[in-house]
Simulated scan of single mutants.
Amino acid sequence: MFAIAASTVTNWGLYILLPIFIAFLFFIIWDLSKQSGAGRAGTFWMFLALGAGFIGFILKILLEMAFTRWFI
C-alpha cells in the first residue's frame, strides 16, 4: 500500500528524528542539573561531558555536507 524507500526512512531518522531526540536529551541534562543543584559550574560540566558526543555528531553532519558540496 505505502511504498517508502529505505533511504527516505533513513534520511528522516538521521536528519529529523535524531536531532529531536538530541534536543530532548539536552533537556534531560538541564533537568538533572536543576534537580541536583549543580550550580553554574556543575551545569557547565554536565553539558560539556554529556553533550560532547552530540556536538561531534552535528559537526560530522556539517563536514559531510561541506565535503560533498565542495570536494566531490
Score class of each variant (00 low, 15 high):
M1E: 08
A3K: 09
A3P: 11
A3V: 14
I4A: 13
I4F: 07
I4E: 07
A5K: 12
S7L: 07
S7V: 03
T8Y: 01
T8S: 02
T8N: 00
V9A: 07
T10M: 08
T10C: 15
N11R: 13
N11T: 15
N11K: 11
W12A: 12
W12E: 04
W12F: 14
G13D: 01
L14P: 02
L14V: 13
I16F: 10
L18A: 05
L18K: 04
P19G: 03
P19E: 05
I20Q: 01
I22G: 01
I22R: 02
I22D: 01
A23I: 08
A23S: 03
F24Q: 07
L25D: 08
F26K: 04
F27P: 02
F27W: 11
F27A: 11
I28K: 11
D31E: 09
D31L: 15
D31M: 14
L32D: 11
L32V: 14
K34D: 05
S36A: 14
S36R: 10
S36T: 10
G37W: 01
G37Y: 04
A38N: 09
A38T: 03
A38I: 04
G39K: 00
R40H: 07
R40M: 05
G42Y: 03
T43G: 06
T43S: 08
F44W: 08
W45M: 14
F47A: 05
F47W: 05
L48I: 01
L48W: 02
A49V: 10
A49E: 13
L50N: 10
L50Q: 07
L50F: 12
G51K: 03
G53T: 07
G53K: 03
F54Q: 00
F54H: 05
F54C: 04
I55V: 06
I55Y: 02
I58W: 00
L59P: 05
K60A: 15
K60S: 08
K60M: 15
K60N: 13
I61P: 07
I61L: 15
L62V: 12
L62T: 13
L63W: 09
L63T: 11
L63Y: 05
E64A: 15
E64C: 15
M65E: 10
A66K: 03
A66W: 09
A66Q: 09
T68D: 13
R69A: 13
W70V: 08
F71I: 14
F71E: 13
F71M: 12
F71V: 12
I72D: 14
